[in-house]
């Protein structure tokens, strides 16, 4: 079976999201945000207080990553995905603000899956534990908020052909569940 690869430009609009199905392999190019535990907590608290966010969320993709420091002359260090489940408590609020894509690793909880259907957002997995390989696809990186959080700061990164797989689409499909079933009948 030859898998087709879908090229996605980010930021994207919803028509792109609507076409994606769990199991699709994608190469993402363009500009996206990074953020993990501590940054999510701060964004979530601002949303709860009805205060403005330090970054625009609407139409954006967010990559759950805390990279290693870049060596001199390098753009970024190792930059693989972190476990997405830790962002589950915060993700629905960000989707409500217009977040379109999340990239990480591992399964999401039911509330997040429902929010993806309600707000039309997609969850992708990047290659967990392949931080060195993924770094090669990041062409620029700039801290744009919460610099005090160090590796957990929010960055804007430019990526070229960043490899990922759709785990949850807006139709309620889940690749992790499908994958296990597929091999279970073998």
């Amino acid at each position: 079976m030859e898998e087709k690869i879908i090229h996605i430009k980010v930021p994207a609009d919803r028509s792109v999201i609507e076409k994606l199905k769990a199991g699709d392999r994608v190469l993402i190019s363009g500009s996206m945000l990074t953020g993990r535990d501590a940054a999510h907590k701060r964004l979530f608290e601002l949303i709860q207080q009805g205060k403005p966010l330090p970054v625009e969320i609407s139409g954006q993709f967010i990559y759950y990553v805390g990279p290693t420091p870049p060596k001199p002359g390098e753009i970024i260090g190792s930059a693989g995905p972190t476990t997405s489940g830790r962002m589950d408590a915060y993700a629905p609020a960000l989707m409500e603000k217009g977040l379109l894509g999340m990239i990480g690793k591992g399964a999401r909880d039911e509330k997040v899956k429902k929010a993806m259907m309600d707000f039309k957002a997609v969850y992708f997995a990047a290659i967990g534990g392949a931080g060195a390989l993924i770094s090669k696809r990041i062409v620029s990186s700039e801290v744009i908020a919460y610099e005090d959080l160090g590796p957990e700061a929010i960055r804007r990164i430019e990526v070229k052909d960043f490899p990922a797989v759709v785990i949850n689409d807006i139709y309620g499909n889940d690749l992790y569940e499908q994958g296990r079933k597929l091999y279970a009948v073998k």
Binding site: T68, G77, S78, T82, I127, A130, G131, A132, S135
Partner: peptide, 24 residues
């Protein structure tokens, strides 16, 4: 494919510029 990507990651990391994983 996934396993070959992980092996490729190791080959990049051993050159010394990027650690194997961002979670060091």
């Amino acid at each position: 494919t996934i396993l070959y990507k992980i092996l490729e990651n190791h080959k990049i990391a051993k050159k010394g510029t990027y650690p194997l994983c961002q979670d060091t």
